[in-house]
Computed example of a mutant assay.
Amino acid sequence: MTDTDDNAGAGWFAGGSPPGSEATGDEGTLRVRIVDGEADEPDDWPGLAVESGFADSRDDYYDRLHDASVAATREAVRERERADDRQLVHAVRAMDDCERTANELAERAAEWAGSLFDDAEPGIEGARAVAEREPDGELERRAVSLAARVADLAAERDALAETIERTAPAVAPNLTEMAGPELAARLIALAGGLESLAKKPSGTVQVLGAEEALFAHLAGRAPSPKHGIIYTHEYVRNTRPEDRGSAARALAGKLTLAARVDHYSGERRETLHEELRERMATIRARAEEGGDGSGSDGGGSDTDAEGDA
C-alpha cells in the first residue's frame, strides 16, 4: 500500500500528521495515496506507521486507515455523481417522475373540477385551463390550486426534456445522434451510466427496459423478447413485425458501439451511422422483395458490437 511518488515504499501514511496534532491539510494527499497507491509486496504497514509517528498503536493505525478509506470512497462517489452522464440520468428520471405525477394528479384535478365547473376538460390541457380560472370560494380555490400544480409539473417536465436535448449530445454525441436525446438518456439511465452501457453486450442493450418480459421468458412463461425500450426508435417501430427482430439486433449492435466510442474517445464517428443506415435499408428491402423476414442475418450486428470500438 505505497504510493508512486517520492514516498514510494514508505506507506500511504508517509508525511501524514501524527495523532493529536492540528490539521495540516494532508487529508487530500492521503486520500489520493489510498486510491492510487501500490506496493510490490506486503509489509508491516501498522508497525511502520507506529515507528514513523503517524499512529500511536496498531489499533490507532487501523482506525486512521478506516477513516482515510471512507473519505476516499465518499470523494469517489461524489465525483461520480457529479459526472455529466449521472446528471443526465437524474434529469431523465426526474422528467419521468414529473410526467407520471402530473398525469395522475390531472385525473384527480379533472374529476374535482368537473364537479365545480361545467366546461372543465380532462388531461393536462384541461388542468391548465382550470388553473387560469378565478375561483369563487374555498373549494374552488383548492381545485384551481391543484390544477395549477398539475400545470407546473407538466411545465417542469417540458423544461427537463429541453435540458436533456441540450445535454445529451455533449455527454454521448454518437449515441444521441443515433438514438435521439431522450432514448439515449433512457438507455444510459437503464444501464446505470455511460460506462456501464459501453461495457454491456449488444444482446443486453437490445432488451434493456424489457426486464419483466425477459424474466418471464427465463422462467418459461413467455417467449424471448425481441426488443426493449429501443422499440421506440423509428428503425424498430416502423419496421414490419417479421423484420423487427433483425432491426432490433442491428440497432442494438450499433448503439453499443456508439456508447463505447462516446465513453472511450468522445469523438463522432460517421462510419457507425452510415453502416446502420445501410443495414436498415437492407432489412427494409425485404418487404419490397417479398421476403418472409425469417432470415437471421440481423444477428451480424451482435458480432460487430463485440469488436473494438
Rank of each mutant, 00 (worst) to 15 (best):
D85Y: 07
R86W: 04
H90M: 09
A94Y: 02
E99G: 09
R100Q: 11
A102N: 06
A102Y: 01
R108Q: 15
R108A: 07
A110P: 06
A113Q: 02
G114C: 10
S115F: 08
D118L: 13
D118M: 11
E121R: 15
E125W: 13
G126V: 09
R128P: 09
E138V: 07
E138F: 13
L139R: 15
E140F: 14
E140R: 07
R141C: 09
R141H: 12
R142W: 15
S145R: 08
S145Y: 11
L146C: 07
A147M: 07
A151C: 08
L153M: 14
E156C: 10
R157Y: 11
L160F: 02
L160G: 00
A161W: 00
E162I: 12
T163Y: 00
I164R: 01
E165I: 08
E165M: 04
E165F: 04
R166D: 14
T167K: 03
T167W: 03
V171W: 00
L175A: 01
E177H: 11
M178F: 10
P181Q: 09
L183C: 12
R186S: 09
L187A: 02
I188Q: 00
A191P: 09
G192Y: 09
G193C: 09
E195L: 14
S196K: 10
S196C: 03
L197S: 04
L197V: 13
L197F: 00
K200D: 04
P201Y: 14
T204L: 09
Q206L: 07
L208S: 03
E212S: 12
A213N: 06
F215M: 03
H217M: 02
P225E: 07
